[in-house]
Nucleic acid binder design. Sequence first.
DNA 1: CTCGGGTTGGG
DNA 2: CCAACCCGA
Length: 478
Amino acid sequence: MTSPPLRLFWHRRDLRINDNTGLSQACSHTPRVVGVFCLDPAILSRDDMAPVRIHYMIGSLQELQRSYEHLGGTLLIVQGSPIQLIPALAQALNVEAVHWHHDVEVYAKERDRQVVNHLQARGIKVETCWDQLMHSPDQVYTQQDTPYTVYSPFWRKWVSLDKPAPVSAPTHLLGLTADELEQVKQLGAIALPTAKDLGFHWDGPFVLEPGERAAKNQLDGFTAQAIYDYGEARNYPGQPGTALLSPALKFGVVGIRQIWAASEQAMAACNSDEARASVQTWQKELAWREFYQHVMYWFPELEAGPYRSGFATFPWENRLDYFEAWCQGQTGYPIVDAAMRQLNETGWMHNRCRMIVASFLTKDLVIQPQWGEKYFMQHLIDGDVSSNNGGWQWSASSGMDPKPLRIFNPASQAQKFDGEGEYIRQWLPELRGIDTADLLTGQIPPLDRQRCDYPAAIVDHRVQQQHFKALYQRHFKG
DNA sequence: CTCGGGTTGGG
DNA sequence: CCAACCCGA
């Protein structure tokens, strides 16, 4: 009695069964598709890992492993370099092919190139495809066949393309035999460790529970209701107006085609122009994610530093005491500090606030954006290289095309988007008794600051804004 | 080649 | 009403 041929599906940023392009392709060849996830020390030991993100990843893997088991299959966990382990597993199991999805990041592209080489050297077939984007980087070009570097024309092109439908999930799988399981244990297959086992400690809450089921529930809930008010509600950090799907998107716990289909369904159910505009605003956010992944793919130098060459030599002042105050939420600017405390306590920050604190770090504190970018990666549950880098380059005005300097005024931002001080009071409980007007402007009387043990403003926004503009003029024009 | 236009802003 | 210069058609 012989088993059907075996294929490996290597999970990376696609921790799900449903709407999984490569997994479905593998399953079209054989019912014996075995999943594998590799705990790569080169990634886990990076100094920009966030414990909360590892917890989310491990939780999602737990559910994925159970899903494989329910379908009759196997999800293997290995720990070590995938460059050695994936080919070794594939060879030992005598697989017909190894499947995985393309990625846009520098490290992933190089790692994958090496895995391909090792597999091909052993005569093992490699089948890869795109999955984490609606449209891969080679599908969205200008009329001159170049990649876009500006969002708006990108969006117009991107939205005009035919959208792929969700992919159906396997209904049953065949796992490894007892002999094969024994064999892979020799090669280093292990039981899924906890995040704590890996040295990551997180006792805080989850903005989104790990796993495919929670992500699907979140998507269903959002597209049934909040999406219709998204255009307006998304601006207020004190209100639950956003989808909270970023961790799921980071780890591919939900499929992008499924998300798009849900948004289109919501669009079809709209009964007002405002609702339709809201749904489209959310779809534009999905396109921002794709835009940033595309530019990361085509311009990998973005990951290392500013795209605008002049910014590489910008005279950042990089004061460590200012940076520390920013990290700890002790700048004396309530909206900035509230946002940083939200990040530190929950591993998530509202996007409006991400822009406020990024503007404050770069323009008011004159600290290079890379420091903030890294701090975000060290704390964000959804920390994604492309989105995070794109956001920071936008805030620092160092991205693809020159823009007017946008210097956010913390007081007007707070007044516009946290008018009742609700968000500030939630994350700065020591300031709950302060007058709302003072909370928003940040002009808290010195005696009140002392009583609340809240720091005086470390810089003066009006002064720093002038200072930055002068530095900018001198550097780029002078 | 010209020309419209540019995420969410500030004063 | 100033952003401020270049992308993209």
